[in-house]
Write a protein that binds this DNA or RNA. Sequence first.
RNA 1: GGGGGAUUAGUGUAAUGGUAACACAAGCGACUCUGACUCGCUUAUUACAGGUUCAAAUCCUGUAUCCCCUGCCA
Length: 594
Amino acid sequence: MSDDTTPADEPKRKDFIRQWIDRDNESGRFGGEVHTRFPPEPNGYLHIGHAKSICLNFALAEDYSGTCNLRFDDTNPCKEEQEYVDSIQEDLAWLGMTPTKVCYASDYFQQLYDWAIQLIEQGVAYVDESTPDAIAEMRGGGLDEGTNSPYRDRPVEESLDLFARMKAGEFSDGSMVLRAKIDMASANINLRDPIMYRVLHAHHHRQGDAWCVYPMYDWAHGLEDSIEGITHSVCTLEFENHRPLYDWFIDQLTDINHPQQIEFARLNLTYTVMSKRKLLRLVQENLVTGWDDPRMPTISGLRRRGYSPEAIRKFCKTIGVAKFNSTIDIQLLDHCLREDLNKTSPRVMAVLDPLKVTITNFSEGDVDQLEAINNPEDESAGTRMVPFTKEIYIERADFMEDAPKKFFRLSQGREVRLRYAYFVTCDEVLKDDAGEIVELKCSYDPATRGGDAPDGRKVKGTLHWVSASECLDAEVRLYDHLFTKENPDATEEGQDFIANLNPDSLKTITAKVEPYLAASTPGDRVQFERTGYFCVDTDSAADALVFNRTVTLKDKWKKIQSKQGGQQKKKKKQGGQQKKKPRLDYSQFKNKKK
RNA sequence: GGGGGAUUAGUGUAAUGGUAACACAAGCGACUCUGACUCGCUUAUUACAGGUUCAAAUCCUGUAUCCCCUGCCA
């Protein structure tokens, strides 16, 4: 994970978390040690938002010569499954992270239980037999102060006895809880006698049926951190209100390690959703093919799509960390991706939308093997041979009748270069009855073999191509944003984010690819020249290749085209004064929780 | 109505009392056997209003806006 480039001459800018750690180190608060952790609940797949947290926590440990644990926060047996534990470990390893230790919150259940008894004995915890509704009612809210539970001052012995019997399974789910005795009038609702344990007769994925009580997050989390010797407990903004409680619990147990909780803003990305609930819904309603659907922002989805761990790490580093609730433009992720793939991906030619071209003056049956560079960014990648024949395919979009001056590609009477091959000139356009172009007749200049004209004549365009007789068919899955709107939650009244799903987020086509690709295996990443970066899908087989489009190449021509179209439209509308786009404000669209 | 946070170019992130930087995006141009890559140039009265100061993004006061908080979820 230390391969991300940080120019040594660039002054290291420190985010607020590193500044905080520096202060702690200066004061000697933790003896100069920095121990972090990544604490997922195993109830879903990791996504790019988790990657931000992962990269942060592991980078902190590395930067300060500390440690970083992976800890499964498995305190709720109802939602958690081994499947998720496995996927999380796989994703973490793929991202290139090696935890110092792999821990489970459930391993601390006995310690937590013993400490709970200690709090009861200290008179700061009690068993409450009120109903869930009654507890909610008594908690109050807003300006209403809470009211004390009638069980709040019951004798210690009674709570001790009841708590032991809760654990033993004598009581039904929801019948009683263990509560901390703090302050029912606190302005911070989290401090109004928060629940520490609930009764749950549920099977735990690691503890089996050993427990009938399970600890709540607020009670458990800080103590888990404390047990592991965590110094800086980094979490997301919504836990800021919980920090006083985090500190309170640890303070009750004198002489245990007291980590510092630090909160940062979670990642939001345009054109996608990040909440586990929404991702789960996409999977459960079969709106995508699964957690690893290449359109999903999950780590497994990105992996299958063809993202590299380097690109994701670079992205996480680039976006930085702060407390401002921001939304990152997906184009920044694309940029980090292209930056890495450009350096690492072998080039190859593939025609996605084939148009047949016959080289009229090329001998029938001849196969001319031409040398092509595998990666201009990496000389060690070497070269390969590409077969050229009388009939080839080019991209349909690379030919245009009555082409404008700015169109550098093929048109009647125009000459272009076929990459690594020859200059060709279009002599004739063949159409079917419907007027559709079905074939081009071109002539080639044998003197330009390899792609250069001995007479020094230049050509403006270079096209990729593939031999019609030597090429392979391949299924290509063209992916686009999963949603049509920057903010999928921006919907009409009565709709939700599902309404903004992009119906064109996947187009499957059959492409013609050069024979060199026959040996490719799932996970291989290549660049289809002039088109984009592609990755061999897990569905791919030797005789049935399947490619996923990871990301397109930047396309200046497309911009020129759309600008010309746009200008015409604008003229029609009126003067076309460009208004400044307002700052992204998603809040007005968010569904308020009732 | 209460509590906790936040606000710097279109989007993000820096600058921690010394005159707004970097990346992406957008636009213009150069280069090019990928209209890719690469390389140039362009883009901010620091949410607003006052105040302190020789000097304010930074300190003070007030205002506005946004986010989070009333699960026996995490």
